[in-house]
Write a protein that binds this DNA or RNA. Structure first.
Lengths: 267, 267
DNA sequence: TATTGTAAGTTTGTCGACAATCTGATTATC
DNA sequence: GATAATCAGATTGTCGACAAACTTACAATA
């Protein structure tokens, strides 16, 4: 039939001869796993949900075999638990989990920021543009009081950090951590909340990166994550709050309003 | 038959009434996954090995169903790859993987050291004892020129760090990273090598922790991991080598020979 | 009345089988 | 002689089925 990907003989003429990205077909297990992740993230499978394999397999239009394989993968990611003889259950995050997830993110994300700042200028500009686009999404969502959209843009903002951070493994880990973050929200609250502080905080993130100030970015991220833990655990504003206000009030080294980042409107 | 675990009614009299640890039975999938991990770590399944499902299932004494589920879990951990219609293959680490794994460890392990130093004194002493025991294992292995035993003790040393580091997630991640480290060795060399620098380096790790010097521990770990990358990639000794020698020669703040840590001989 | 023993029903865990797909080699053709 | 087409073999991906195990409800007993 078609020539194999290794050859491409006789097709010289276009550019990038011989360097096609290998075609990657997703297996059924991949598809099921991805669908389950989506369901966990968008809340259609809240934490604690217990599901029977047969019923779920029927809904997904597959048989129990591939579904069970996908379950194992989600279990390894920490999103599902498989109680013996009880099907599967969406993991419920405890207070300890909330602290652990956010502490871990506080270790990872500042480092990602530092790595992004070492990127060559054109790529760095791309990252800033993507981050700016997500911030704009957050702003639009906030204007509409759409907590769901705000949360989604939040996740995507941090996913951008993960993707550009440079480490395959770290990107995967942070990707899972972000889903777990969403699980934390669902585990602690009944419904989404519109969280107004989120937007200025993320504007400050982008500004710090645009100003090439990795340490300020790191500090802002840490403060944000500590605040998130307090909010999720409904703890009174601790000593960190004053620190947050100070950092946000402080003029960054090189003031640069978000408009000057000329974000691509299309995204 | 037996009373359910939630009740335990009528058995007051012993101590710790009503607080038994839940019994944890491993599922078949758990068993298979663990067996496969062992095989990867001990080298009976070298990187690049391709296996047929039927043959492997027969060897393990299970049917293909549970085996395929375990495969998915190992895939999520990054130890296996599943080429389409080609069974399973043990992941082969590239030079980029070597750098990535060690870079990531360099981010994680110093932090674990810091956390261990914040532990209450009795637990901290336990950690130091366990670490010291692993170092002794390393010394014995080196004396016998047993590269395999040396490598195993090395892994267990760092596993101790992971377990006591305080974060469930981080422990799991580092556990996987350590297996990947072993895969790096197998991917780069044909056989184990006796690596003499390993023991003094780890003695220094323990000494730094015993001296309550988290920053020195962090620096030593980073230097060690950078050296490992160079060794694995067979690069000439870079600018970091001088730094390593300087750190190892330098007298720690509070000199404390390993003997004074009174290690439990039993381990 | 509280607790234990019993039994039915449901769901999982595991296995065997079938078909689609891919690989590798062989043959035919330019 | 090299390339393309064909074909047989083997293996995976998926499904259906069976038996074991667990849960829940109910009844019996102290």
């Amino acid at each position: 039939m078609a020539t194999r990907s290794s050859g491409l003989s006789g097709l010289e003429g276009g550019r990038q001869v011989g360097r096609l990205a290998p075609v990657r077909r997703a297996s059924t297990v991949d598809l099921i796993a991805e669908r389950l992740r989506e369901a966990v993230v968008d809340g259609s499978l809240p934490p604690g949900t217990v599901l029977g394999e047969a019923e779920l397999a029927y809904q997904l239009g597959v048989s129990r075999g591939p579904l069970r394989e996908a379950m194992q993968r989600l279990t390894a990611e920490g999103l599902l638990v498989i109680p013996r003889r009880r099907g599967l259950a969406v993991r419920t995050m405890t207070a300890d989990d909330v602290r652990d997830v956010h502490w871990l993110r506080a270790q990872i994300e500042p480092e990602l920021g530092r790595r992004i700042l070492t990127l060559p200028a054109p790529e760095r500009r791309t990252v800033l543009a993507e981050l700016g686009a997500e911030v704009k999404r957050m702003q639009r969502a906030l204007k509409k009081d759409d907590a769901r959209a705000l949360g989604d843009a939040y996740l995507d903002f941090h996913r951008v950090l993960a993707v550009w951070g440079g480490s395959m493994r770290l990107a995967r880990m942070l990707g899972t951590l972000l889903i777990e973050t969403r699980l934390c929200t669902f585990s602690m609250f009944e419904h989404f909340e519109v969280h107004r502080d989120l937007v200025p905080e993320h504007v400050a993130f982008v500004e710090a990166l645009a100003a090439d100030d990795g340490e300020r970015f790191a500090a802002l991220v840490r403060v944000h994550l500590e605040a998130e833990v307090r909010r999720l655990l409904a703890e009174p504003e601790g000593p960190g709050k004053g620190e947050a206000d100070r950092l946000l009030a402080e003029t960054p080294d090189e003031p640069q309003p978000l408009d000057r980042l000329d974000l691509p409107e299309g995204l």
